[in-house]
Simulated assay, not measured.
Amino acid sequence: MARVREGLLGRAGEWLRDWSVLRQLHGEDANSTAAESAASRRLRPRLEEADTVGTSICPYCAVGCAQLVYAKGNDIIHIEGDPRSPINAGTLCPKGAATFSWLLNPNRLTTVKYRAPGADHWEDKPLDWAMERIAQLARRTRDETFVEKLPDGTVVNHTMAIAQLGGATLDNEENYLIKKLCSGGLGMTWIENQARI
């Protein structure tokens, strides 16, 4: 029993000697390593494990804050604001700071969901199937509703049955191409961007 007590007292003494508060109270400079302990010296930043650092843009709003994405192998291990960005200078709002957690959320949908007309359940479909279906429905709607001329003979070449809403983080060049496709190629008139809404 005495050995156990001595062992406990010895470990408690080591812990007290290593406790940064007591060292600072005994006069060690608080700006030195006095705030460190043996446990804190063993800690390593998780970003040290990253073997790749990529850049991204926060997907939430029209601000377009830059992000640094840290990965180890094929796994993302951290996302933070990019301090080189003139837009956000390394800061992120609460939504942007949560990018990592929603990206790896087990409830995040990662497959195309389709519910047939009149069905009471969703089905998983391949992405290629969904893209082809969207293209077919857009083309069919355009063809069925396309107006070449107004009754007075004015040439309009448009459809009023389809609209396009762009994402807030698209840049000017992407928006330009989308506008050319939607208005010039498909004849759409209702074209808007989330950044303005």
Rank of each mutant, 00 (worst) to 15 (best):
G153T: 00
F146T: 01
R142V: 15
L150K: 12
H158S: 04
R142T: 14
F146W: 07
V156I: 08
H158D: 01
I134V: 15
R133S: 08
M131A: 14
D143P: 02
V155W: 00
Q136I: 04
M160G: 09
D128Q: 11
T154N: 02
M131E: 14
Q136W: 09
T145N: 12
M160Q: 10
A161P: 00
A130N: 02
R140N: 08
T141I: 13
A138N: 13
T141H: 07
A135I: 11
A130L: 05
W129P: 12
M160K: 10
R139I: 10
I134W: 11
V156S: 02
A161R: 08
D152H: 07
T141L: 09
L137Q: 15
V156K: 01
L137C: 09
D128L: 09
I162S: 06
L137F: 07
G153A: 00
D143G: 05
T141D: 07
R142N: 13
A135T: 14
M160A: 10
E132Q: 13
M131D: 08
L150P: 00
V155Q: 07
V147A: 06
V147S: 05
P151W: 00
E132C: 03
Q136Y: 06
E132F: 05
E148A: 07
I162G: 03
R133N: 06
V156E: 02
I134P: 11
Q136C: 04
N157C: 05
T141S: 11
G153F: 00
P151M: 03
E132G: 12
T145D: 14
A135Q: 13
G153Q: 00
Q136D: 07
V155F: 01
E144Y: 12
R139D: 13
R140S: 10
T145L: 12
M131C: 12
A135C: 11
R142H: 13
A138K: 11
R133Y: 14
R139N: 12
E144K: 15
N157R: 12
Q136R: 10
T154L: 07
I134L: 15
N157P: 02
T145R: 13
W129H: 11
I162W: 05
R140M: 11
W129S: 12
H158M: 01
M160L: 06
Q136N: 06
D152Q: 07
V147F: 03
G153I: 00
E148N: 03
E132S: 15
Q136M: 06
G153S: 00
I162D: 02
E132H: 10
I134Q: 11
L150F: 01
R133W: 06
I134E: 13
E132V: 10
R133G: 08
V147P: 02
L150N: 08
L150G: 02
A135P: 05
T141N: 09
P151T: 02
G153D: 00
M160W: 05
R140I: 03
R140P: 04
T145F: 09
L137T: 10
L137A: 14
D143Q: 08
H158Q: 08
E144C: 15
H158V: 01
T159P: 02
H158K: 03
T154M: 07
D143N: 10
E148T: 04
A130T: 04
M131P: 05
E132W: 03
W129T: 06
A135N: 15
T159Y: 02
